[in-house]
Amino acid sequence: MYPPRSSAFASVRRHFDDPRTSEAVFVLVPTDADEADPVRLTAAETHEALYGPGSDSQFVTMVWKEVIRTAQSDLTPDSTGKLLALWLALPRLTGTVHRVCTRLRADRSDVEAEMVLALLEKLADRDGASCLTDSSLLHAARARAWHLAREGLRELPSTHIERITEEHALNASGEEANAPAAESLDVRVDRPDGPDGLCAPLRFRVRPEYLRRQGIFIDTDDGAQDRSAGHSPGKRRRPGRRADTRPVRPAGRRG
């Protein structure tokens, strides 16, 4: 199954889905015979040689070697050689993406982007260029994906935003700084489904009085709704939550 259209893998696939692109890129694979001319393959033919039925393992090794060599020596602005290497690696990486996202609940777009970054870094590494193979190239991408899911996307608690928000609310209302914590509200903002926005969920705590003064619409667990006193009575608000907000729950009552 293809990833979302906004993902890195989908973008690479769309690039080579265009026949004008897939037929304009060539790979010259040398043969064993010294005097024989290299085999000239288009991008589509290269893909078929690697993953088609009846693929010869020895020829597959030679194709990958030439694909990697072409990608490493490609200095053109559009980096066609590197894009070709990425495209040819996708069938061997898609399964890892699915396992990482399923087991560790990582975001698929983030995992794919990290894999692409790892592939490009390995192809640009001049020190290890001579010993780079398809196995080591793909291993680097898989390792980075698992590392990202285990470490990079781990949610770490932080009280920095909570302290700033509480201090601002208390200073504006003139209340005591030691107000009981039971009267505060936990606010959680989840990352959107699209590629833009937060990289991780955001959670902080504020006092209800501050939310009311700012005109923030509150939708609590018991179905009660609160709105700012400054709202015009002539403007009716549609039931439910405001866009890009989450239910606000009293502290200690998380579902």
Rank of each mutant, 00 (worst) to 15 (best):
S228R: 09
D17S: 09
A33R: 11
L170H: 01
V187D: 03
D127M: 09
D110C: 09
A140C: 05
P208C: 04
A129G: 15
H98I: 05
A44S: 14
P201R: 02
V63F: 05
S158M: 09
E155F: 02
L153P: 01
R237F: 06
S130D: 13
R253V: 10
V100S: 04
A149K: 00
F59S: 07
R13I: 11
L117A: 14
E167S: 14
E162C: 06
D196P: 00
A44R: 12
A181Y: 10
L120C: 09
D186H: 06
S136K: 10
P77T: 07
L153I: 10
A143E: 10
R227E: 15
A177Q: 13
V97F: 01
L93K: 04
S136R: 10
D221Y: 08
V63K: 00
M1F: 05
R144E: 11
R205E: 14
L104A: 03
H160P: 02
L88G: 02
D221Q: 12
M1W: 03
D222L: 12
A33D: 13
C101N: 08
A106E: 02
D127F: 09
L75G: 06
V39A: 09
A8Y: 02
R14G: 07
R40W: 01
D127Y: 12
P157F: 02
V116P: 01
A251V: 15
R254M: 10
C101S: 10
L153F: 00
M115S: 01
T220Q: 15
L211M: 15
D244T: 03
D193K: 09
S232L: 11
D125Q: 06
L170W: 01
K235G: 00
G52A: 07
I68N: 02
A200R: 10
R163Q: 13
R126N: 05
T245W: 04
G128W: 04
T31Q: 13
V60Y: 01
A106I: 01
A44P: 02
N171D: 13
L198S: 10
S57T: 09
D125R: 07
